[in-house]
Write a protein that binds this DNA or RNA. Sequence first.
DNA 1: TAAAATCTCTATAGGGTTAATAGAGAATAT
DNA 2: ATATTCTCTATTAACCCTATAGAGATTTTA
Lengths: 152, 152
Amino acid sequence: MLSQKAKYAMRALIYLAKARDDKADTPPVGIAEIAAKQAVPRKFLELILLELKRHGLVQSYRGKHGGYALAKAPEGIYFGDVIRLIDGPLAQLPCASLTAYRRCADCEDEATCAIRHVLKQVRDASAGILDRTSLSDVLDGRSGGMVMGDGI
Amino acid sequence: MLSQKAKYAMRALIYLAKARDDKADTPPVGIAEIAAKQAVPRKFLELILLELKRHGLVQSYRGKHGGYALAKAPEGIYFGDVIRLIDGPLAQLPCASLTAYRRCADCEDEATCAIRHVLKQVRDASAGILDRTSLSDVLDGRSGGMVMGDGI
DNA sequence: TAAAATCTCTATAGGGTTAATAGAGAATAT
DNA sequence: ATATTCTCTATTAACCCTATAGAGATTTTA
């Protein structure tokens, strides 16, 4: 399951991307505004935005008229990165992860482990979608990036 | 993440499938044997097998020489079913699930929800793999069923 | 019939994670 | 200066995951 936190993070980022889309000159958006418009608990959102900032996805400005803005173009912010950041690896098993591989403690023979093999395929398919879908793919109702088979 | 419980369940089922493969006449396999050979806590495995039985994946026999056996051919037992049974829906959001759809409580407009749209694609891709890979696809080192692109 | 082996079932408990809240601190604009 | 805003550390309540315990029911065998 996607955590509530990751969902809030995505909502905030999409909101920031839209704010940027609306005007050429983008002033920072305050936490309070994002929280109110996206139905996210304000104090919780503070933590999330701070984390996004520390990982370079958003920029912050303090003081009056301060707030948050995307740190890079929406084209460069991918679902996969956000989810990894908040919820950890996309793979459903550590041993099936590409970016955060760890051996399973109780694994007898990784090479022939069927569970690993199948879940690695699932990971690759998921990452194939999430690492190719960016905020920009999602801004105007379109979503899913260059993925085939979604009926468009 | 795949729960430990689901991992144990898969291990037990694969073990039972192999036991069946070895001899034409398959006697039931005791919990104790599965637990020992697959490094699964015995009492925990009891709960798991009971659950698998209630859902019709395995059969049980009581008394001396009792134990468990698959309730159907390995060809008919899919990864997707087992994971759904133990861990719940494959989708990472209730609103992206096909078999267990639920609206998100705080969703403003589901039709245009980008998060939902993307995670639905991920679900479909995952289910496409997990619902086509059965125990039989995995018995002899082969794994992954009729899925393309895994280098075989 | 008694004993042994095995599955069945309900209850419970410890540890970790998640979601959220609180409150003091630091920076900035006016 | 003062108001506004982000920054940071702590804390908490609820929940879920993993596992264990123990009594009960069923079947085989002697």
